[in-house]
Protein backbone atom coordinates (compact mmCIF):
# COMPACT_ATOMS: atom_id res chain seq x y z
CA UNK A 1 0.00 0.00 0.00
CA UNK A 2 1.06 3.58 -0.67
CA UNK A 3 2.00 5.65 2.39
CA UNK A 4 2.77 9.32 2.81
CA UNK A 5 5.29 9.92 5.57
CA UNK A 6 5.99 13.47 6.72
CA UNK A 7 9.16 14.12 8.66
CA UNK A 8 10.38 17.08 10.66
CA UNK A 9 14.14 17.03 10.67
CA UNK A 10 17.04 19.23 11.62
CA UNK A 11 17.78 21.69 8.85
CA UNK A 12 21.40 20.56 8.75
CA UNK A 13 23.72 19.72 5.87
CA UNK A 14 23.64 16.00 5.23
CA UNK A 15 20.29 15.37 6.90
CA UNK A 16 18.53 14.82 3.59
CA UNK A 17 21.21 12.42 2.39
CA UNK A 18 20.75 10.34 5.54
CA UNK A 19 17.05 9.94 4.83
CA UNK A 20 17.53 9.17 1.16
CA UNK A 21 20.49 6.92 1.95
CA UNK A 22 18.39 4.92 4.39
CA UNK A 23 15.88 4.07 1.68
CA UNK A 24 18.62 2.94 -0.70
CA UNK A 25 20.57 1.07 1.96
CA UNK A 26 17.60 -0.94 3.22
CA UNK A 27 16.08 -1.53 -0.15
CA UNK A 28 12.97 0.57 0.44
CA UNK A 29 11.33 2.44 -2.31
CA UNK A 30 10.83 6.20 -2.76
CA UNK A 31 8.02 7.23 -5.12
CA UNK A 32 8.13 10.96 -4.47
CA UNK A 33 10.15 13.18 -2.23
CA UNK A 34 9.64 16.77 -1.26
CA UNK A 35 11.58 18.88 1.20
CA UNK A 36 11.77 22.51 2.34
CA UNK A 37 12.42 24.49 5.51
CA UNK A 38 9.47 25.23 7.79
CA UNK A 39 8.49 28.47 9.56
CA UNK A 40 11.19 27.50 12.07
CA UNK A 41 14.41 27.82 10.04
CA UNK A 42 16.12 25.12 12.12
CA UNK A 43 13.61 22.54 10.91
CA UNK A 44 12.91 21.08 7.49
CA UNK A 45 9.81 19.18 6.56
CA UNK A 46 10.33 16.25 4.28
CA UNK A 47 7.49 14.27 2.78
CA UNK A 48 8.10 10.95 1.15
CA UNK A 49 5.65 8.60 -0.53
CA UNK A 50 6.58 4.97 -0.41
CA UNK A 51 5.00 1.61 -1.05
CA UNK A 52 5.15 -1.44 1.17
CA UNK A 53 3.17 -3.85 3.29
CA UNK A 54 2.56 -3.07 6.97
CA UNK A 55 5.73 -4.83 8.07
CA UNK A 56 7.89 -2.82 5.67
CA UNK A 57 6.23 0.49 6.56
CA UNK A 58 6.72 -0.26 10.26
CA UNK A 59 10.42 -0.83 9.63
CA UNK A 60 10.69 2.32 7.52
CA UNK A 61 9.17 4.53 10.20
CA UNK A 62 11.27 2.90 12.92
CA UNK A 63 14.49 3.35 10.98
CA UNK A 64 13.60 6.94 10.07
CA UNK A 65 12.93 7.67 13.72
CA UNK A 66 16.32 6.25 14.57
CA UNK A 67 18.13 8.80 12.41
CA UNK A 68 19.54 11.38 14.77
CA UNK A 69 18.49 14.27 12.51
CA UNK A 70 14.86 13.17 12.46
CA UNK A 71 12.94 14.98 15.18
CA UNK A 72 9.43 13.72 14.56
CA UNK A 73 7.45 11.96 11.89
CA UNK A 74 3.93 10.95 11.01
CA UNK A 75 2.46 8.46 8.57
CA UNK A 76 -0.29 10.69 7.15
CA UNK A 77 -2.06 7.79 5.51
CA UNK A 78 -2.91 6.41 8.95
CA UNK A 79 -5.56 9.13 9.35
CA UNK A 80 -7.56 11.64 7.36
CA UNK A 81 -5.25 13.92 5.52
CA UNK A 82 -4.91 16.34 2.66
CA UNK A 83 -2.50 15.45 -0.09
CA UNK A 84 -1.31 17.94 -2.68
CA UNK A 85 1.18 18.03 -5.44
CA UNK A 86 1.99 20.82 -7.84
CA UNK A 87 2.80 20.13 -11.47
CA UNK A 88 3.80 22.31 -14.39
CA UNK A 89 3.32 20.92 -17.88
CA UNK A 90 4.39 22.29 -21.20
CA UNK A 91 1.99 21.13 -23.90
CA UNK A 92 1.73 21.80 -27.61
CA UNK A 93 -0.96 24.40 -28.29
CA UNK A 94 -1.43 24.79 -32.02
CA UNK A 95 -4.62 25.25 -34.04
CA UNK A 96 -7.66 23.52 -32.59
CA UNK A 97 -5.60 22.05 -29.77
CA UNK A 98 -5.03 25.54 -28.38
CA UNK A 99 -8.67 25.82 -27.31
CA UNK A 100 -8.85 22.21 -26.27
CA UNK A 101 -5.93 22.62 -23.84
CA UNK A 102 -7.51 25.74 -22.37
CA UNK A 103 -10.86 23.96 -21.91
CA UNK A 104 -9.31 20.90 -20.29
CA UNK A 105 -7.20 23.09 -18.02
CA UNK A 106 -10.36 24.86 -16.87
CA UNK A 107 -12.09 21.56 -16.16
CA UNK A 108 -9.16 20.53 -13.98
CA UNK A 109 -9.00 23.99 -12.43
CA UNK A 110 -5.49 24.32 -13.75
CA UNK A 111 -3.99 27.64 -14.75
CA UNK A 112 -2.10 28.57 -17.85
CA UNK A 113 0.91 30.40 -16.48
CA UNK A 114 2.96 30.96 -19.61
CA UNK A 115 2.18 31.24 -23.28
CA UNK A 116 4.11 31.15 -26.55
CA UNK A 117 2.65 31.04 -30.06
CA UNK A 118 3.06 27.27 -30.10
CA UNK A 119 2.70 26.08 -26.49
CA UNK A 120 1.08 26.58 -23.12
CA UNK A 121 2.62 26.04 -19.72
CA UNK A 122 -0.08 24.76 -17.41
CA UNK A 123 0.12 24.71 -13.63
CA UNK A 124 -2.07 22.31 -11.72
CA UNK A 125 -2.35 21.23 -8.10
CA UNK A 126 -4.13 18.28 -6.57
CA UNK A 127 -3.52 14.79 -5.36
CA UNK A 128 -1.35 12.50 -7.42
CA UNK A 129 -4.42 10.88 -9.04
CA UNK A 130 -5.70 14.18 -10.38
CA UNK A 131 -2.32 15.07 -11.81
CA UNK A 132 -2.07 11.68 -13.49
CA UNK A 133 -5.53 12.16 -14.97
CA UNK A 134 -4.57 15.55 -16.34
CA UNK A 135 -1.47 14.10 -17.96
CA UNK A 136 -3.61 11.42 -19.53
CA UNK A 137 -5.97 14.04 -20.90
CA UNK A 138 -3.05 16.03 -22.33
CA UNK A 139 -1.28 13.07 -23.90
CA UNK A 140 -3.10 13.26 -27.29
CA UNK A 141 -2.22 16.95 -27.61
CA UNK A 142 1.44 16.36 -27.01
CA UNK A 143 3.24 16.78 -23.71
CA UNK A 144 6.64 18.45 -24.06
CA UNK A 145 7.81 18.62 -20.47
CA UNK A 146 6.57 17.76 -16.99
CA UNK A 147 7.79 19.11 -13.64
CA UNK A 148 6.14 17.66 -10.51
CA UNK A 149 7.02 18.66 -6.96
CA UNK A 150 6.23 15.34 -5.38
CA UNK A 151 3.54 14.90 -2.80
CA UNK A 152 3.20 17.14 0.22
CA UNK A 153 0.57 16.54 2.84
CA UNK A 154 -0.95 17.55 6.12
CA UNK A 155 -3.36 15.90 8.55
CA UNK A 156 -7.00 17.00 8.63
CA UNK A 157 -8.52 18.44 11.76
CA UNK A 158 -6.75 19.31 15.00
CA UNK A 159 -3.76 17.03 14.54
CA UNK A 160 -0.53 19.00 14.20
CA UNK A 161 2.96 17.81 13.38
CA UNK A 162 5.19 20.15 15.35
CA UNK A 163 7.66 20.06 18.22
Amino acid sequence: MRHIISILMENEPGALSRVVGLFAQRNYNIETLNVAPTEDPTLSRLTVTTVGDDRVIEQITKHLNKLIDVVKLVDLTEGNHIERELMMVKVKALGAARDEVKRTADIFRAQIVDVTPSLYTVQITGDAGKLDAFLQAMAPVGILEVARTGVSGIARGDKVLSL
Partner: peptide, 10 residues
Protein backbone atom coordinates in the same frame (compact mmCIF):
# COMPACT_ATOMS: atom_id res chain seq x y z
CA UNK B 1 16.21 -0.36 19.47
CA UNK B 2 12.59 -0.37 18.24
CA UNK B 3 13.74 -1.21 14.72
CA UNK B 4 15.20 -4.51 15.98
CA UNK B 5 11.85 -5.61 17.32
CA UNK B 6 9.81 -7.60 14.79
CA UNK B 7 12.41 -6.93 12.10
CA UNK B 8 12.93 -10.52 11.01
CA UNK B 9 10.70 -12.45 13.43
CA UNK B 10 7.44 -11.01 14.72
Amino acid sequence: DPSSVSKTVR
